[in-house]
Amino acid sequence: MNDVLIGILDIQLGNLTSVANAVYESGFDYQLVSTPNDFKKITHLILPGVGFFSTAMAHIEKQNLKTAILNFVLVDKKPTMGICLGFQLLSDYSEEGECEGLGLISGSVKKLISKHLLIPHTGWNSVLSQVEHPVLKGIKTNRDFYFVHSFHFEVKDTKNILSLTEYGNNIVSGIFRENIVGFQFHPEKSQNNGLKLIENFCYWDGNSKC
């Protein structure tokens, strides 16, 4: 696996260090990706994220990263994973800053609203996988992962749903399509199961069939 190099999108927001350390802990090298040129060597891309949707998209546009990301995902068809905000960026549109996303998975990001539940959705919650996927291999269903978010991804097509999590209603906690996966929770913060997921991603060839 010497030729694997995990790119981590650096959009000057949020917590990159934890993602980078989790990749390294899994036995892989990483490179921060902040310009279109940085895409040349990487074999996998992680869009990490804590932060504000429209601020992130504005940065992606400003650094001319949008075309590079779309090429990497849609033309080169390389394995790509979004985490938390990075997962939401895969959508068409978000209410957070009323802004268009990357449009890689159809659906939009909406504010979590509930009379009874505490917002943000913060803490450990069960992830119920809906299909088998190489990135979830070896992780039992119904295990807990760490969530912290105030917006959620309303996926248009149920065939893109990888996992669900109950918080008031079912929210989509994982998505997939071809060489793309994305998670609302933070695998890099979810101890052993999270590290397993990141390791699986690093070994993944981008084929979503098990």
Binding site: L13, G14, V50, F52, T55, V148, H149
Partner: peptide, 8 residues
């Protein structure tokens, strides 16, 4: 909160 999100 605006920059990093309320959750942070």
């Amino acid at each position: 909160a605006k920059r990093f999100g309320s959750q942070a």
